[in-house]
Structure formats: C-alpha cells, structure tokens
Write a protein that binds this DNA or RNA. Structure first.
Lengths: 337, 337
DNA sequence: AAGGGTTGTCGAAGCGCTTCAACAAGTGGT
DNA sequence: ACCACTTGTTGAAGCGCTTCGACAACCCTT
C-alpha cells in the first residue's frame, strides 16, 4: 500500500503539504499542487480510510438503515437505496447498509464506534423505537418517512396527504362519485407506517370536501387477495367507477380481474395508481398515476444529511409535492359521458 | 466518546489487557475479564472503528457492489443484498453498498483505501471489466454469478444450466412436446449476463436430448411486449403447450394474456417459472417454479468471502442445485390426457 | 532447591493520517 | 527601508487502537 509519506517523498514535499493538497484546507501553489497530484497518480495512491477517520474523526460514511422485510414496496426501497448510494458518492461519502434486524442497537453501535458520520433511516414508523436514541446521540440523521413527532429531526417524504387528495380530485373531476381505494396490506396499517395512514386521511378529507363516496380497503399484494377485496368492494358499492390503488403488487391483479369481469379500463372504470412511474407504464394499461419519487427522496435525504454534517442546524420537514400523470387508465365516469 | 484507555483506567488494568479481552487473542483470567466487561458495559464503550482499522489493517467491512439498473430482477437483488447484510453481521462485519456507477474504479478505490476487507460482486457479466482488477489486487472477493473465466476467483450461483434442464424435463415428463421459453429482455443477453445464456443452453441441450421442440424468445417485462412475443410464439408454433418463463416481470402479463385468449392453465397450457418462490405464489395461478435462492446466494457469498478473509485459499465455484416445486400451473399436455 | 514451562499482565512502538503553531519568503503601503 | 500582512510550506503532536516482546508469578519436574 502506498502511503502519504511515500507520495510526499516522491514529490519532494512534506507530508502535511500532501494532506493539504488533498483536502484543500490551506492554499498551495499551483506548481506544488501539480507536482503532488502527479505523484499521486503515478504511485496510484489512495488515502487510508482508517487513518483518515482516526485523525479527522470523520469517516465519510453514511449509514442507511433499511427494513428487513422483502414483502413490501421493494422497488421503491431499492431505488431509494441506489439513489442514496450514488448521491453520497457525489458528496465523497460511502454508504453503509444496515438492516432493521439489529434494531435500535444498531444506531448505538454505528454512532458509538464512529463508523458513520450520519444516518438515513427508511421505513420510519409513527412511533419508531430508533428515534429517541437518534435524538440524543445528536448525530446528523434524516428520516425517509415521517414519525408522529418529528421535532428535532429532519424528514423527507412524499406528501402523501396531498397525494391522496390529488387522486380523489382527478377522479372527481372526471365525474366519478363512487371511489374505492385498494390500500396497502393490513399489516402496514397495523405497523402504523405513516404514509399509508396519511394517504388514507388525504383521500377521505378530499372526498368529503368534494362530496364523493369513498370506500377504503386494505389489500395484500396477491391475486387471490385482490380478487376477494374486489368482490367485497363491488358487493358493498356496486356503483363504484373509480379505483385508487396504493399497493403496487395489487395493480396487475386488479387490472386482470377487471378485464375478466368485462369491465373496460378506462371506459367503465378508471384506475389511478400510487406507484413509481416505471410500474405505471409497464402495466397492461398505461396507468394514470401519482409517482413515488423514490430517486428524489433518496437524493434529498443525502443532501439534507450532508448539510447537517457540514454543521447546519434546525429541524426540517421536507414534503415533496405529488405529481399526477394522466395516462390511459382514467377517463370520464360512465354516467357522465 | 469513551475510549479504551478510559475503560482500562475504570477497570484498573492496562489498555492492552482491555484490547485482549475484546479480541480474545491472549488468555485473560476470568476475574479480570469480568471486571473489564463490567466497565465496558457501565461506560457504554464502543471501540472506535477508524482506530481499529488503522491498527489492525482490517476494517471489518465487506463491500457489496450492486448493479445500478432498477429495471431487472429487483426483488432478487434486494433479497441478496439483505441476506448479505444480515449474514455479514453474524460474522461481525458491516456492508458497504457500492453501485456499478463508478465502474471498475470503485474496486481500486475501496481496496486501495483499505475501506473494505473483501468484496462481493453482483450481476457479473461474462466478460466483466472488474475482474482483472480484482484478480490482481488479491483481495478476497466472491462473485454472485459466473464469468466466462472464473479462474482465480470464487463464485456462487444457482446452477442455471441445470435449472433450464429441470424445467424442460418437468414439461417433457408431462407429455409436452412443444415448449416455448420466454427469456429475459434482449438487453440481458446482449450484456452477456451469464445466467441467461446458461439457462438457455440448459434448456436447449435437454430439449434436444428428450426430443422436445423448443422455441426461445427474449422478452421485455411489460404487458405490451409479452403480448407481442406471445403472438409471435403461437404464430410460429401453434402447437405450443408448455411455457418456461425466466423474466419474472413477464409472468403476470403472460398469465393474463393466456386467460384472455381462453387458454386455461394448466388444462390447455402449462407454465413453469424461474423466479423467487414469493413471486410464484403471488401470481394469479400458483406457479410451478424453480426457485431463485436469493437468500441462500447472499449467505453463501458472505461465508465464502469470510473464509478467504480468514486466509483460506484456492478458487472455488459453488453452484447451488435447482429445486423445482410443482404447484398449480403445470399438468399433463392436452394431447396426452 | 533449582530449572523449565505456563499463564496473565503490561509498556511501548507504531498504524497513516490531520492539524496546529511556527516560520520563511514574498507583497505592498508608508 | 521598514513594518505589517499574506501566502506557502513544514515539523511535530496526536487520534485510539493492536500487537510484540518482556516479565512476574506460579506450576510442575527432577
């Protein structure tokens, strides 16, 4: 392994000079900088991460805590993770992947050992056990998702309340007066993951305002579950002409079932999905949808956490505004045509 | 931050004794150990990762290099990543998440900086640009997937050749004589990702041996693409009664299209999928499938890489045997009933 | 009772970097 | 021609840990 000392010798300068070239914390003459950079290249030098962390007490690592489950919104999680990783690199940081498995203890371990300078937590529940710990370590941290009490914390999330409202508005505008919502699996609500509850609240509030009837049903992501849920919805509200789907795994089953029952999309029923754009365009009908901006969420999380690492203070709650894209799955309600 | 020195003082021993208690590299009397452990607990001590890495030149970190794409086999990637993370923790290591974005340069950086003790590469292509680098860094590394020349490298993968063979065997046994294969997207073959080609070879070889007609078509994972591919397959081979699907995103579209055309599964056509079990049981018909043992792959990769970190040598190619689970999507060929 | 082994503990020397105080050399104002 | 700065460079002191060699203290042999 090439060391900084060897680079210094090769370039004919002192070790500190090389260090300052690397960090830019002192001005260095163009000539010297040039020479040092040349030596670095020739020798193929890479600063030793451990030594650097020890001396500077900054590891240049961000910890990303992911849920362990693989049954829910996988593509979203994955895209967030990749966005976090690439954005972190743009800020000269690396990403440490933690699973929920260790639980809150992982926070203590990572912070206590100085392994990571900052943390990003995904899949935050309303009353998350990791939050108290996080708050009193005082380490920079950003949540993706919003807990019941976000005070003293920085959070990023899609504005799910507005998302729900937007879906209802779109359908109401098209003349739909009976809307059914295919929600996330019941387990998601039981876990009190904020986004699901907020979406539901947004849907309900707007529906009430607009005088639209709304039926909200949780639903697992399997074909069989969707079949049951759909049957119960149509039984209870035969006049349903608009669907909002939040569980992305239920989208394909729903479309397939509607087709099977001879209900044409969008002629007979309209469907609005809440899902990543990629899912919306791959379905059998190109779906009108509100995008889950996974990439954007990951990117902003890193940017906010880096700002805190640089010393910026103050808690902050950043809600990304939802955008609805009209595609082929929504149209005027049959009665209104 | 509590340091080792403070623990030593608190326990009334020297720093080295504390270190040896922690590492177990020298014998320590039960009484001393007890006292030190007590102090560690009381003070809430966590060894500083940077200092430890510097002194021992081991970071206790494994780098995991993931593909950046989010269009392909996402659930599999995700499950592997989570398995890697949890297994690594069981070996007292953490996982650094790298994306393909930086390319081969990432290998150099991570190895050169001593950031990671070992690497696990996913989505390995037949002629992967990262391999030469990896070989001559001499760092422990394990590939998930198999390149054209695996010499000097340790690899883990599902035995896709056997997987292809197994699918054909199953269908042939049921009397199907005309089998169509819905492969991965054309891009996957163009990238020369080994598993797709190996599966195809396994399918073809076994089909030839068993005297079964086989038509292999790549296919994107969208409904529209699947519709086109299916039409062309049935046009070219109207007698097709057996399907093997490797692109998991094409599964739902295929089932949906078959239903639409009045072809019952498994009465008229049989479908065998190559996909994670979870996908197989969530489809509209519970699918006969060969499982992609993502968790197992991630776990073995870590175990193998840890063995190398401990100093074991010798290249090794570990192929996991495929297991086919019969579910509701395959049955006797119509002619054979 | 002396010699040879164990066993448990310690002191000190680094690991490779950052950063501080210090200083040499130039720059410009008076 | 001198002082006060600014600019560029350096030596040295650590950061918190691991690990090596040394050394008591004890056990067993003979």
């Amino acid at each position: 392994m090439v060391t900084l000392a060897e680079v210094a010798r090769h370039a004919g300068v002192s070790a500190s000079t090389v260090s300052y070239v690397l960090s830019g914390k002192r001005s260095i003459s163009a000539a010297t900088r040039e020479r040092v950079e040349q030596s670095i290249r020739e020798l193929g030098y890479h600063p030793n991460a451990g030594a650097r962390a020890l001396a500077s007490s900054r590891s240049n690592i961000i910890a990303l805590m992911m849920p362990l489950r693989t049954d829910m919104y996988v593509p979203v999680m994955m895209e967030i993770a990749l966005a976090v990783a690439t954005t972190a690199r743009a800020h000269d940081h690396d990403v440490l992947l933690l699973t929920g498995e260790e639980g809150p203890e992982a926070v203590r371990r990572v912070v206590g050992s100085g392994l990571a300078d900052a943390m990003i937590l995904m899949d935050v529940e309303l009353d998350d056990a990791r939050l108290p710990l996080l708050r009193d370590t005082g380490r920079p941290a950003v949540l993706i998702g919003i807990p019941a009490d976000p005070s003293g914390l920085t959070c990023v999330d899609l504005d799910f309340t507005a998302t729900g409202a937007l879906c209802v508005e779109h359908l109401a505008e098209l003349g739909h007066r009976d809307i059914a919502v295919v929600g996330e699996a019941a387990a998601v609500y039981e876990r009190h993951t904020g986004f699901a509850e907020r979406t539901r609240d947004g849907l309900r509030a707007r529906a009430a305002e607009l005088g639209v009837r709304l039926l909200h049903r949780p639903c697992e992501g399997s074909y069989a579950a969707m079949a049951g849920t759909l049957a119960r919805i149509l039984d209870e509200r035969p006049g349903t002409t608009g669907f909002v789907v939040q569980n992305e795994a239920a989208i394909d089953p729903l479309l397939s079932l509607l087709r099977q029952q001879g209900r044409a999309v969008p002629e007979d029923v309209s469907v609005v999905a809440i899902c990543p754009d990629q899912v919306a365009v791959q379905a059998s009908v190109r779906l009108t949808s509100v995008a889950i901006p996974a990439h954007e969420m990951g990117r902003r999380a890193v940017e906010l956490v880096m700002a805190r690492v640089r010393g910026e203070r103050g808690d902050r709650l950043e809600l990304l505004p939802p955008r609805l894209t009209v595609r082929a799955s929504s149209g005027p309600a049959p009665a209104a045509r």
